[in-house]
Design a protein around this nucleic acid. Structure first.
Lengths: 214, 214
DNA sequence: CAGATTTTGTTCTAGTTTAGTTCTAAAAAT
DNA sequence: ATTTTTAGAACTAAACTAGAACAAAATCTG
């Protein structure tokens, strides 16, 4: 994944941005990791950008953004010897859902979400990552992971994954109105959509939500 | 599927990346699994790449990525409800947190929350149930369960459990301002509180959030 | 606001160290 | 006896260090 130098620089950049609010300069970085020339920093940063740990705004000074950090976990978590286990399940993580975009068709077998058994009851479940802010007033934020229970009917007021015209999937509150359904965003900047029931398929209802900070 | 050498090497690579954040070199690997030459490592890695357990960025050093791990075989744990087991942890659920109520008053050692190991990294954690709407604009709603990492310092912008005057615990965004701290609610109907740093103790920072519907 | 100044980022060259690959042969296992 | 695994050396390539010169961005100044 990373070389030790790359890793140390990444940690230093992240720490500095968090503590001071602004990005260190190349000279500050070279002092911090003990180099005498900043050309090496340049190469390290290029490597980190290439690996998608950093992004830099082109033609700006002190304009680095940390995209992710290597997940450093205690070894007990990966000691797969069956000691620290709880009853649990793995459900597929199907990708992102956003207003106006279909769920990514790829069901990547590698993307799985582990859940304690207590979070899922009978039935079949899958997970999606939220993109966009159309449900923000329901406390569903960009980047949240939602756990969806596969069902094909829902009650008024349920938050559902709705597939429109077999093309576009979206997470909205549903309200039935005769032969029509209303798909209600929870953000006053967005409009409720009213569609013939025949064009809308319920693909599941919101069962739980997980958000990770930092 | 995998030979014992391949399996051990894969676990070692995964463990090293997770613990240190960076990828081991071939020499480190050969020492780790007890070989005297690194040419054998090369063959093992090729085999792991071919079986899609590893990916390597071409023409890069220390640029391995673990794609998947062999399935966990829960040998002794009894499956519950036909469900599987996963690596996991249990953390204490201390009760509700709301403006004006100390945590300890409602602490009950018996309430535990099970989490998949992937949700907690190094450190000690506890869980609280949110009461009230003072953080609603941060997507934290009444009834949500928050997972708190026990630490006693935080950075500006972190959402923390703050204990005021050893009496009152509250979940707020923290901002340090010299000898003072600001405790910032995320609801325009509430006021930011500015307190001398001596009256405020950080009891943990928000690590993740779980919400269950229905 | 324009121009000057300083700070910051980029590029180049060149050399050192570290890491990865390939090949051959010996040793072990089947 | 054949195949697989291991060891070792030789080689190629990437990572790292350093210095300087230059270009661009940010800041200062009148």
């Amino acid at each position: 994944m990373l070389t030790p130098k790359q890793y140390n620089l990444l940690l230093y950049i992240n720490k500095t941005i968090r503590e001071t609010g602004c990005c260190p300069s190349f000279d500050e970085m070279k002092d911090a990791i003990g180099l005498k020339s900043k050309s090496g920093i340049h190469a390290l940063i290029d490597a980190l950008v290439e690996r998608n740990f950093l992004r830099k705004l082109p033609h700006k000074a002190r304009a680095l953004e940390v995209l992710k950090l290597p997940k450093v976990r205690p070894s007990t978590v990966v000691a797969l010897d069956g000691k620290d286990t709880i009853p649990g399940v793995e459900i597929p993580l199907y990708g992102k859902i956003a207003a106006g975009t279909p769920i990514e068709a790829i069901a990547n077998e590698n993307d799985k979400l582990s859940l304690p058994a207590g979070m899922v009851y009978s039935g079949s479940y899958y997970a999606l990552t939220i993109e966009g802010d159309s449900m923000i007033e329901a406390g569903i934020m960009d980047g949240d992971t939602v756990i969806i229970k596969k069902v094909d009917t829902a009650n008024n007021g349920d938050i559902v994954v709705a597939l429109i015209d077999d093309a576009e999937a979206t997470l909205k509150e549903i309200k039935k109105d005769g032969a029509y359904v209303h798909l209600i965003p929870k953000n006053s900047a967005y409009q409720t959509r009213r569609l013939p029931a025949s064009r809308v398929k319920v693909q599941g209802i919101l069962s739980s939500l997980i958000r990770t900070y930092h």
